[in-house]
Design a protein around this nucleic acid. Structure first.
Lengths: 230, 230
DNA sequence: TTTTAAATTTAGATAAGCCTAAATTTATTA
DNA sequence: TAATAAATTTAGGCTTATCTAAATTTAAAA
């Protein structure tokens, strides 16, 4: 009944740090580019001055390279940390969809909390339990123990020519609103999509979904749909 | 790829509060008795002055009844909160043992973190996924959505007479050390135990485990083994 | 019952992560 | 290039949950 170890609560001392690293990773497209203070501030919905404080802290810890007035990018150590958090986030998202009957637009907020649970063993066991999956419910690649992606999506629906067919393998935009829109037009992961017609005047595409429904999608939407040509 | 909602990190604003409520619940044996400042301080391994601060805060929120120099006990609202946290803790512990191959002595620390993830839907789905279990891996009862236990263990091995048999249904002490000791002497949940002899001079008990091994257990240990007579 | 010891509370300080307002640097435009 | 605008940083504060040290209250012992 009474647990012996007095492990009360999460250390959580670097919850904020983890969120900054993850944000920098995402905004820099995988740790490559420089990310500005205001980009981080906009994304995290906090003040630029708060961002500056944290950038200094992360820089002191050698997790980012930071030059005043010039943004930051991840060091190898910072990238490793970020990938660990992303790995946890995506594995938990998949667990929620696969075993707890959540829909792909509902899992982000919960995974955002679960990703901070500290236990390497836990996440490796979860990975095994899920069958070492390559992608999360949004088609985003899941980093392995080694931090390497098992699969990469790069082609979008926008790049397809008339007559070509593909399968949806991911989305670039995982917002709840966007995912719900896709639900409404019957598009989900592994859905087959055939390009019937492309309209030059607005870049929109007329597609056939699973050989059943016709649907027009805007250029903006087509750019956010990651696909594999078949 | 980029999640739309800017839900970065756990609110966690009442992580500390949750831990105090849980501690008060446990130390008061389910919210009944008064708990002293020093008892909380000892258990949480922090200073009495810190406890006093928090007791005032919880009292202001009507989660506990607190009288200066006189300890505290949970209000109905506080008890409800505590039970929610305990429910989450125990369900996650069971998940870890049942699906991720953890042993009963390894799950406390991880569940200590998972219990703070906020989502009523999540925990209810987990409950369903686990088959609405009555007890956790230590035999502790799991509160339902309504906060009511599905089962209560109250008899201990110490109360058994010579010749009687029982099944282990819980442990009063969930410390990693104690659980590892039980592993060593081949006692786990649902293990059958028969009392061969009781020694008056030290209160120790000679038992037969699963009709296979003989083992002597001290009075202290026998008091921490919750059982059902068969 | 008085004295001493133990428990508890108060007062004031600290660190993390955020904030506002002002100052500084960089970028843009005239 | 100089003036203006935008981005960024600095300086100083706030809140939460902790701490130490001192003061107070309760409990125990003489």
């Amino acid at each position: 009944m009474l647990p012996g170890k007095r492990i009360i609560g999460i250390s959580m001392m670097n919850l904020a740090e983890e969120n900054y690293l993850k944000t920098i990773f995402n905004l820099s497209g995988g740790g490559k580019k420089n990310v500005s203070t205001s980009a981080i501030s906009d994304f995290m919905e906090n003040k630029p001055s708060s961002v500056t404080d944290m950038l200094k802290k992360l820089s002191d810890k050698s997790l980012i390279n930071y030059k005043r007035y010039n943004g930051a990018y991840l060091t190898p150590a910072g990238k490793e940390e970020a990938l660990k958090v992303i790995r946890k986030h995506r594995l938990w998202e998949l667990f929620l969809v696969k075993y707890l009957a959540f829909s792909w637009h509902e899992v982000h907020e919960i995974a955002e909390q679960m990703e901070h649970v500290k236990s390497g063993l836990l996440i490796d066991r979860l990975d095994k339990f899920l069958g070492y999956p390559a992608t999360d419910p949004h088609g985003d690649p899941i980093p392995g123990i080694d931090g390497k992606y098992r699969l990469v999506n790069n082609k979008t629906l926008e790049e397809l020519k008339e007559g070509e067919s593909c399968v949806l393998t991911g989305v670039k935009n995982s917002s709840s609103e966007f995912l719900k829109y896709l639900n409404e037009i019957s598009i989900s992961l592994n859905t087959r999509i055939r390009v019937l017609k492309k309209y030059a005047f607005d870049g929109s595409v007329l597609v056939k979904i699973d050989e059943k429904h016709r649907q027009s999608v805007s250029k903006e939407v087509s750019k956010d749909l990651l696909i594999t040509v078949i």
